[in-house]
């Protein structure tokens, strides 16, 4: 799809808009429909679109696998640590009342943090799923190539062994 000018130009315009919309859904979730789950999936959709149009390698370049794994873990950790923070401040686990000056503002902070954790995990999980599924074909080809090389190497070593034997006989 890289050669199609229309798709490339439209994608370049769309991707930032999709990401911005995801952020809106994420942080406006208290007031309108939205929240971490939806925002995460929409944010991931931008990366999936990018990888589909410009190729998997460029997609991986934009959002490296190591960083992705870190983000998956960081989201869950942020959620759990918000609970720990409210425990350290003297309330129950995941009881956000104590996080702010008033119970209401505490709840706001808690919900924002927790939703951000959910969004981070869901977005990076969806990107990881797509990259893994799409990367499988390249992986299979790579493995086949490696096998060919290995067989060639084995043949070479056998030939060497033969020639040394011959030399020894002489």
């Amino acid at each position: 799809m890289q050669d199609d000018v229309v798709i490339r130009v439209i994608a370049k315009v769309m991707i930032p808009a999709v990401m911005l919309f995801a952020l809106y859904v994420q942080f406006h979730g208290d007031y309108g429909p939205g929240g971490g789950f939806q925002a995460g999936v929409i944010f991931a959709a931008a990366f999936v679109l990018n990888a589909m149009i410009f190729g998997l390698n460029r997609g991986r370049h934009v959002w490296p696998t190591g960083l992705n794994l870190l983000a998956i873990c960081a989201g869950v950790l942020l959620y759990g640590l918000t609970g720990i923070a409210s425990m350290l401040l003297g309330a129950n686990y995941l009881d956000y009342d104590v996080l702010g000056a008033t119970p209401q503002s505490g709840q706001h902070i808690g919900i924002l943090l927790v939703e951000f954790g959910v969004g981070l995990t869901v977005a990076s999980v969806m990107v990881a799923l797509f990259f893994t599924f799409a990367g499988r074909l390249t992986h299979i080809r790579l493995m086949a190539k490696m096998q060919v090389h290995e067989e060639a190497d084995q043949r070479k070593t056998k030939r060497k062994a033969k020639s040394t034997k011959k030399r020894a006989r002489k």
Partner: peptide, 17 residues
Amino acid sequence: ILTAIVVGVATTAVGYA
């Protein structure tokens, strides 16, 4: 159901894998 949908697609992905 909101959470079930996202969990559903994650488990479906394991099935496809």
